[in-house]
Simulated assay, not measured.
Amino acid sequence: MSGAIRQVTVRGRVQGVGYRAWLEHRARGVQSLEGWVRNRRDGSVEALFAGPADVVADMIAACRRGPSSARVESVTEEPAGSDALNLRPPGERFSVLPTI
């Protein structure tokens, strides 16, 4: 896949407020985007976005706002490799993974 692959961690009031479901719905609405989202036991939400650089940047910008019920305190991002996409079940473009 060409383009950008970024791993994102969102901290704040982002669990128990529909953040993960909001992110999944938004990501599935973008045909050129692949990846996954999951909750982490530390209370953060982690996501991987892969696709055209502008699409990935738009998703990261959306993560900084989140749904109206969330309170995003910080979003960190870093480059990731295409092997991180293998965490998804086969055949899924965007997945919700189990909490780690």
Rank of each mutant, 00 (worst) to 15 (best):
A47G: 09
S74H: 14
N39M: 03
S95G: 12
E46H: 07
P90M: 06
I5S: 13
R40L: 03
A62R: 03
G29S: 09
R6C: 10
D54R: 15
R88T: 12
F49P: 02
G35N: 07
D83P: 01
A70R: 06
R65V: 15
S74M: 13
S44T: 02
I5N: 12
N86W: 00
V75E: 09
G3M: 07
V75Q: 08
T9Q: 12
R93T: 02
D54A: 15
A57R: 05
L48T: 05
H25E: 15
L85N: 10
V37E: 04
G12Y: 06
G12K: 10
T9R: 11
R28W: 01
Y19G: 11
V96N: 03
L48R: 12
G29R: 12
D42C: 04
M59Q: 07
D42E: 06
V37I: 07
I60D: 14
A80H: 08
L33V: 06
W36H: 01
W36L: 05
S95T: 13
V30C: 05
R26G: 02
E92W: 01
Q15E: 04
M1Y: 09
A4L: 15
R65K: 14
E78R: 14
G43D: 04
Y19W: 07
Q15D: 04
I5W: 11
D58H: 11
P79M: 11
R40Q: 04
S74E: 15
G66N: 11
W22A: 09
L97H: 05
G12D: 08
R40S: 05
E92F: 00
E24L: 14
L87M: 10
G66Q: 11
S82Q: 11
A27I: 04
G81Y: 07
A70C: 11
L97K: 12
G3C: 11
L97G: 12
R6S: 14
V75I: 01
A80W: 08
Y19F: 15
S95K: 09
R13V: 01
R93G: 03
G43R: 08
N39I: 02
M1S: 14
T76A: 13
V45L: 03
L33N: 05
V96A: 15
Q15M: 04
G66W: 00
S82L: 06
V17P: 02
A61S: 10
S32T: 15
R41F: 04
P52G: 15
Q7K: 14
R26V: 08
D58C: 11
R88I: 07
A62G: 02
Q7R: 14
M1K: 05
A27V: 04
A21G: 05
R71F: 09
I100V: 09
V55E: 14
R93C: 02
F49E: 06
N86T: 06
E73Y: 12
D58P: 13
Q31F: 13
R6Y: 02
